[in-house]
Design a protein around this nucleic acid. Structure first.
Lengths: 178, 178
DNA sequence: AACAACCTATCTATTGATAGGCAACAACAT
DNA sequence: ATGTTGTTGCCTATCAATAGATAGGTTGTT
């Protein structure tokens, strides 16, 4: 794995755990085993790093998610979507990167905000394609699902209890699918 | 208003805008018009400040919310609950303090985590009292509502669009009330 | 006298960022 | 094959700014 990818991996871990303002170039460098100046070589400013972080996270997220039409039933599309978030919470044991960045949005460099915005927009597009219907209602429902999952991660992490996430998605399922 | 309250007001504004790691004692001092050492006089450590911040925020929140049984119908209780969050978003134009802290939970002093946890617990208690029913299902629904509103604030702020919040709560209303 | 509520001055550690050096390697001309 | 040049990827060393925090002084009130 390239040093650049190692840096992104470590930085993503910190960002999803502590937030954009909760880690430094030195934190990353120490964990990767290089010097902070070398991190600046790959990502000149923290904004550049944050931007790359959010873009890579989004690309990986949607790659893992697959096409909304890849599975046939609404029920299974929902399960797949929820599962992608759940894995981020229970396997990585961390926040959704863009959920974290969304909370901090007012203190982020513009490029990072743009990538965060784009992640959410792509989520809404995916959900609209997965659960079609009347345009306006479909969009509302998409935002609803996205918001609920991001919020569920915050609550579950504060309680150190993935059950809070599952409780939320169970309720969400009956709201959206029935 | 006491200097201590002024400090809390300013600090709350910063925390809800930038997160716990996004402001300093000097930021507060400058805006209040005193020196950073004077902020330390009132709140020795940043943890003390954060703890006071979260506790005051929670107390004000529930004072504004009133008792869950103060209004008779489930529909009006829901409207009151949602309205309290909506005001935080549209009047203050900021995140819910504890929603922000919940995202950052892994990088906060223990006392701040405890207060954040307590805010969420009190919310769930309020919601369970407001929308009674079978114990387990009631709790699930309470977590669901709380998570959805916190998430809706994150999305709405990233999009700079309160309509995203309203879209979410409209969907949530029909999920919970119908 | 005692206390509260500020202040000045200062500390050490850390922040994001830059300048310039050095070794490894590839491309290319001789 | 040999030397030259350029690029990549790291390094050391350093910067000014800022972080949270402390010691101790001043002022005003009780």
């Amino acid at each position: 794995m390239s040093k650049s990818d190692e840096i992104l991996d470590v930085a993503e871990g910190f960002a999803r755990e502590r937030g954009y303002n909760g880690f430094s170039f030195r934190d990353i460098a120490t964990k990767v085993g290089i010097k902070s100046a070398s991190v600046h070589y790959h990502f000149p400013t923290k904004g550049d790093l944050g931007e790359a972080l959010a873009r890579r996270y989004a690309d990986r997220f949607f790659s893992e998610l697959g096409e909304p039409t890849a599975v046939a039933s609404a029920r299974r599309r929902f399960a797949r979507y929820v599962g992608t978030f759940r894995k981020a919470l229970t396997v990585d044991k961390k926040m959704c990167l863009c959920g974290m960045l969304g909370a901090e949005v007012a203190s982020l460099p513009p490029a990072v905000v743009a990538e965060t915005d784009r992640f959410f927009t792509r989520n809404i597009d995916w959900l609209q394609a997965a659960f079609p219907g009347g345009a306006k209602r479909t969009r509302r429902r998409a935002i609803f699902i996205l918001a609920t999952l991001e919020g569920a991660m915050v609550i579950a992490r504060t309680f150190h209890d993935a059950e809070a996430f599952d409780a939320t998605t169970a309720e969400l399922a009956s709201a959206v699918l029935d």
